[in-house]
Amino acid sequence: MSLLSANNISLSFGDNQVLQNVSLSVKRGEVIGLIGPNGAGKTSLLRILANLQNPDHGQVDLQGKNLSDTAIKQLAQQIGYLAQGAPAHWPLLAEKVVELGRLPYQSLNQSLWQGLNTKDKKIIDQAISQTEIDHLRQRPITTLSGGERMRVLLARLFASEPTLILADEPVAALDPYHQLHIMELLREHAANKGAVIVVLHDLNLAARFCDRLALLHKGKIAVEGKPALVLDNKNLRDVYGIEAKYLKDDSQFAVIPWQRVESSN
């Protein structure tokens, strides 16, 4: 059974049809990449999957149960959402940011009077060592570099112990080292804890780390499947309006976006 499945999702804002009959499912152990040009509907789809936005039509099931029938706190324990742009509005200490990940498991009384229990602390320490941010614990998050900040936010996500992680452009604006690090951590999560759906712009990272890709175009899934299938020249030309060059060996391949095509829609 799939962990999460979205069926015939449609969404529009006024006259603007953002998503049209989109269906997508993810199984345990999988990393799925949502790719597509700017404005294709990737973030909207991810927000619907995270129950942050209600679709006009269609429904999303988590382990066979409709999202809107599931208690919001229970959802918070199962779905972890990493927002686009990694917002942080106050200079909270990195450690405190990670602690926020335990909120879905705490009552108001516990937060006010008792604080974190031993189990919470253990899980937080684990998340911190997994993301290698131990040395950043006492640093305000606003003073961290982009890569450090994303690792802190990822630790926050891991601290919530979600089954499914939905990450919106987690590697945008990161250096190659951190891009690989973040993608490895997501891959690791899928292997050990559940599954990941990740919005990406970098086609190579998508090809390298995702089991399947869904290529969104104008609110529809243009093509879905193995990276090598999705990222062929025809699809890239039709959807992105680009031509690519490929580096292939037996099991892996890389895509180099090469030039724009005149006849792009």
Partner: peptide
């Protein structure tokens, strides 16, 4: 809410 509205909502 320090981490934004979407994150706050996703935290339950």
């Amino acid at each position: 809410l320090s981490l934004g509205e979407d994150t706050a909502r996703s935290l339950g």
